[in-house]
């Protein structure tokens, strides 16, 4: 039970004329070691929600428990929390600022009180994890390519050795190669290092491929929560709130409607290929005799 969000309400611009309810009665539990996807339209409140997970936003009511402890309780160390719950913002390359890649990645570890050697070791580990070669350690972060900048920025959070990694649209604006590198990295962190992953994404295909559970946010409320199969089987409801399902789901549902007895719960292309092959082969075989 890593993170428990309890009856969380958030109000934008509280106390001003622009006051607006941002999040409404959010209840969500993120288990240790799970990979949860958060989907929702732009402005649905998903970024606002994840900015609560490390205490950046303060709710109007409700609270969040991290490992059973209330993070909004007086005296609870936000700094410690932020080293445990790493938050990677959208377009994180815009937070690079140091003179070298290595010193930028060391910024986080040093802030949370690691010794110089420890910070150094941790930074180097993180950089090698994201696939940034030693030759580039002393380069200016502004000289890197777009994809490399993104990975260096992610390394800046990884170097704090978080137990939970929260990522807000980590692949936005990247080309397919850059995108896959990041997604593979996240998957590896989850599978090999047991890091809990919270992934906010616009891409239904990506969430379908990697997440074990999906929470759908709409107008500041949790619209649905469940396994990708459960969520995407409700694709018609998703469309009503301006979202969609992966193309595979549409394909299999269409095939079902024209008489193929396929499993419509399948969500990834590779599984769909297998399923279609099975049914086309079967039809050919039984009908052919």
């Amino acid at each position: 039970m890593a993170i428990v969000i309890k009856d969380l309400n958030y109000i934008y611009g509280a106390g001003t004329v622009f006051e607006k309810q941002g999040l409404k009665d959010i209840n969500l539990t993120i288990e240790d070691g799970e990979f949860i996807g958060i989907i929702g339209r732009t402005g649905s409140g998903k970024s606002t929600l994840i900015q609560h997970l490390n205490g950046l936003n303060v709710p109007a009511s409700g609270t969040i428990l991290y490992n059973g402890e209330d993070i909004y309780k007086k005296g609870y160390s936000k700094k410690k929390l932020r080293s445990k719950v790493g938050l990677v913002f959208q377009y994180p390359e815009y937070q690079l600022f140091e003179t070298t890649v290595l010193s930028d990645v060391r910024f986080g570890p040093k802030n949370i009180g690691m010794s110089a050697e420890e910070a150094d070791r941790s930074a180097k580990e993180a950089l090698s994890m994201v696939g940034i070669h030693e030759d580039m350690y002393n380069a200016s972060p502004f000289e890197l390519s777009g994809g490399e900048k993104r990975r260096a920025a992610i390394a800046g959070v990884l170097a704090m050795k978080p137990e939970v990694l929260v990522l807000d649209e980590p692949t936005a604006g990247l080309d397919p190669k850059g995108k896959n590198e990041i997604l593979e990295l996240i998957d590896k962190l989850h599978k090999n290092d047991g890091v809990t992953i919270v992934l906010v994404s616009h891409s239904m295909e990506d969430v379908a491929k990697y997440a074990e559970r999906i929470a759908v946010i709409n107008d500041g409320e949790i619209f649905a929560c469940g396994t990708p199969r459960e969520i995407f089987s409700r694709y018609k409801e998703l469309e009503k709130i301006g979202l969609s399902a992966p193309q595979t789901v549409y394909l299999l549902n269409e095939l079902k409607s024209i008489g193929y007895d396929v499993d419509t719960g399948i969500i990834t292309p590779d599984e769909a290929v297998k399923e279609i092959l099975m049914h086309t082969a079967q039809t050919a075989y039984t009908e052919g005799i």
Partner: peptide, 20 residues
């Protein structure tokens, strides 16, 4: 060339290669 085909194209391609 590091490009990704749309899902339908990808599935059709795999089906073709499997002999369909």
């Amino acid at each position: 060339y590091n490009l990704e085909a749309p899902p339908a194209v990808y599935i059709a391609d795999r089906l073709k290669k499997a002999g369909l």
